[in-house]
Design a protein around this nucleic acid. Structure first.
Lengths: 207, 186
DNA sequence: GCTTTAAAAAGTAACAT
DNA sequence: ATGTTACTTTAGAAAGC
């Protein structure tokens, strides 16, 4: 009856309102992170799929939106770390990570672990390093992957170390501190990773 | 003879629960037993730390207790006996034949060979595995039989947790080894 | 879901020297 | 630059918020 219609309208309004809020949140976070439109669209699709499968129950819209954005970045090969997503979200890194695992499994996203290579373009541009340095860093990472030097190591740390080495080999040296800054890791991590890469890949680094 | 992963199995921690009586006065326990910690605001149980077998006990007002830290069934038995003794010293009626239930056993082991976690993340059953090196260096593998969770590291060392029988860890290692060989690794 | 306990694995972080 | 301590992950129980 009329009552039933009113309820449907209410639900519909609430659903639309929530979706609008989620989409604006995605846009706000994406802008803050300088993410391209395709990532925002991918995130919106992931979020809508999550809504359609009732994955929002017991979770905050912001948490699911942040997790959807994190997943979208990885799907589009322009990864952001959970810490970076958390910085522009009101939700904690832990909550985002937990929600990501959940929706990732429920939606069958099957995302492979983030590759250090996907961080190279962003970190290099942040250091104003040219394509040649990027290519060399990618080649180092490719070899590192084959030699099992990336198992269990943080993708950002390995990428940062490869870029550090590449910048020196290319005569466009960047300090550990500069690389650490854009990569969001500590200088100690870059030191540990680059020493391991240099040693096991037989790369001679002359400082 | 080659390296035997099963010989490297080592129990690192056992968690067990028990009921020692029908009720306990926590404030009294905290005051009478030296070293006892009790902050009702922080946690509803009294924390008791034993040294001989290094075990920590969480004692609740309901008479239920949780023992953690034991590295063997023997030390776990000893720990419960010692706890019973401490309570009896306070004139509390505690039965002589205390029983407990093991809730979780944490075991460490070593496959003896480095493992490429990235390859496993591709070859294994994707929905039973979680591998997020950005967050944690170990690959999380949930087994159905035995029902345990394994943390596998690139070094080839691993942690088996969630099991209730000491032998669950052995079964898990055998499972991991067969899965690995089936995929052409190891 | 959180709080507290214990313990291992390997990587990374924070702070001190 | 190195050293120490500490946090990440896993499981599980307990009583209560």
């Amino acid at each position: 009856r009329l009552r039933k219609w009113q309820r449907r309208i209410r639900v519909s309004n609430a659903t639309e309102r929530n979706l609008a809020f989620a989409l604006s949140e995605l846009d706000r976070m994406a802008s803050a992170l300088g993410l391209p439109r395709n990532v925002r669209e991918t995130a919106a699709v992931v979020y809508r799929d999550a809504v359609d499968k009732n994955l929002i129950r017991g979770r905050s819209i912001e948490g699911v939106a942040a997790a959807a954005l994190y997943a979208a970045c990885r799907q589009c090969s322009v990864p952001r770390t959970l810490d970076e997503i958390a910085e522009v979200s009101r939700v904690s890194r832990k909550e985002i990570g937990r929600t990501y695992r959940f929706i990732s499994r429920e939606l069958g996203l099957k995302l492979l672990p983030t590759s250090p290579i996907d961080y190279v373009p962003r970190f290099c541009s942040g250091l104003t390093l040219k394509g040649e340095v990027q290519s060399r860093a990618v080649e180092i990472l490719r070899q590192a992957g084959e030699r099992e030097l990336t198992s269990g190591r943080g993708p950002t740390g390995v990428a940062a170390a490869a870029i550090y080495i590449s910048s020196i080999l290319s005569g466009e040296r960047r300090t550990q501190r500069e690389v650490a800054e854009v990569a969001g890791v500590t200088e100690v991590t870059i030191r540990n990773r680059y020493k391991e890469l240099a040693e096991k890949l037989d790369i001679e680094i002359i400082l | 003879m080659s390296f035997n992963p099963e010989d490297s199995l080592k129990i690192e921690n056992i968690v067990a629960s028990a009921k020692v009586c029908d009720s306990l006065d926590l404030p009294t326990l905290a005051a009478e037993i030296k070293g006892a910690e009790y902050n009702k605001k922080r946690f509803p149980g009294v924390v008791l730390r034993m040294t001989d077998p290094k075990i920590a006990a969480l004692v609740f007002g309901s008479g239920k207790v949780v023992l953690t830290g034991a590295k063997s069934i023997e030390s776990l038995n000893r720990g419960l006996e010692i706890l019973g003794g401490l309570l009896r010293d306070l004139k509390i009626d505690i039965p002589d034949d205390l029983t407990y239930k093991i809730q979780n056993i944490v075991t460490s082991a070593d496959l003896g060979t480095p493992i490429n976690l990235n390859k496993i993340a591709v070859g294994f059953n994707l929905d039973r595995i979680e591998y997020e090196p950005e967050q944690f260096p170990g690959l999380v593998y949930r087994l159905e039989e035995p029902k345990v969770v394994v943390l596998l590291f690139g070094s080839g060392k691993l942690i088996i947790t969630g099991g209730k029988q000491p032998e669950d860890a052995r079964g898990a290692v055998q499972k991991i080894l067969s899965d690995l060989s089936n995929l052409g690794m190891i």
